[in-house]
Design a protein around this nucleic acid. Structure first.
Length: 305
DNA sequence: ATGCCATCTTCTAGATGA
């Protein structure tokens, strides 16, 4: 009998599947725990990542700001966490995204939406194609922060951020016609907190990059371009305050609670029935030498799509 | 309405984050 490399009880076994197509012979679990976490340096945070994986046992783990080249990536440690499938889009010192998985992944593409050559996007197909009626494509994003001044003429970084968002919108508008029969998931640090309840003070952050009306409008257009469902707000009412990032500069982040919801999980409309549960894992923000972002955890039941 | 912290590297200073 073939070993079953993807079950949660044997998660530490190494996958014996040589390639993506062959992996379709094996039936992976259809209840997928998906996590997105801006770790702010994977090399600094590798122990905390292991601690999180031990506690929450994600099946698919999207990381942003890995801040390393592909060569510097801690392959051994990630493999020991049980992720037999890893796709990395790294660069030196800054940015960088990676998608870790216990089920097979097929690397699709990495778009350079703002034309800077920075590593901010990675798309993969999740290897569960024979069990779902359609392919499942997963986009992992790290949208540019945009600097301090919310003016495209005065601040080149803000211009890059806005360009990035406009190009994302174009991309998904185009894809919406071409790939309408695909399931899609978009996660990552989008660096925009769109709702009033996504920031600690709507009024005081209106001119602060991450919550300015022009950014919120641009993100709204990206969302509309593929009719994306905001899974976090699907589970947590928009009236309720919800954050995923707290500045390092606060002495007591929990007491001050001056957070922002910069991290997102979006689903294509076809995936809405799969959306089972959602939480922000704030506990990780309390750990020693934490990331300033908390992991966001989604549970998806792909048997329902 | 900041805070003043944390990451990286041409490394003890400056760029970057948001």
């Amino acid at each position: 009998m073939l070993s079953y490399p993807f079950s949660r009880t044997t998660q530490n076994s190494q996958p014996s599947i040589p390639n993506f197509k062959a992996s379709y012979q094996v039936l992976p679990p259809m209840k997928i725990k998906l996590v997105t976490w801006n770790v702010n340096s994977i090399r600094t945070r590798v122990d905390l990542i292991a601690r999180f994986v031990e506690a929450e046992k994600p099946d698919i783990f999207c990381l942003q700001e890995i801040k390393c080249t592909n060569d510097q990536f801690p392959h051994q440690a990630v493999s020991e966490m049980g992720f037999g499938h890893t796709e990395i889009q790294g660069q030196k010192a800054y940015h960088g995204v990676a998608t870790l998985s216990k089920v097979p992944l097929k690397r699709l593409d990495c778009h350079d939406f703002d034309g800077t050559g920075q590593a901010r996007h990675l798309a993969v197909e999740i290897g569960i194609g024979t069990r779902t009626k359609k392919p499942v494509v997963l986009h992992n994003f790290y949208v540019p922060a945009g600097g301090d001044v919310a003016d495209e003429d005065e601040n080149p970084k803000f211009k890059c951020k806005m360009t990035y968002l406009r190009e994302m919108e174009k991309h998904f508008t185009k894809i919406a016609k071409k790939d309408a029969d695909h399931h899609k998931i978009l996660v990552g640090d989008l660096n925009i907190a769109p709702l009033e309840t996504d920031v600690w003070s709507h009024k005081q952050l209106l001119k602060v990059v991450s919550h300015t009306p022009v950014e919120v409008e641009a993100l709204g257009k990206v969302q509309q371009s593929y009719n994306w469902l905001d899974m976090m707000r699907h589970h947590i009412p928009p009236e309720e305050r919800l954050y995923s990032w707290w500045s390092y500069r606060s002495k007591d982040w929990r007491k001050n609670n001056r957070g922002r919801r910069l991290d997102h999980i979006w689903l294509s409309p076809t995936m809405k029935p799969a959306s089972q549960a959602l939480k922000v894992y704030e506990t990780a923000r309390d750990w020693t030498r934490p990331s300033d972002h908390a992991p966001v955890i989604a549970e998806l039941d792909l048997d329902l799509v």
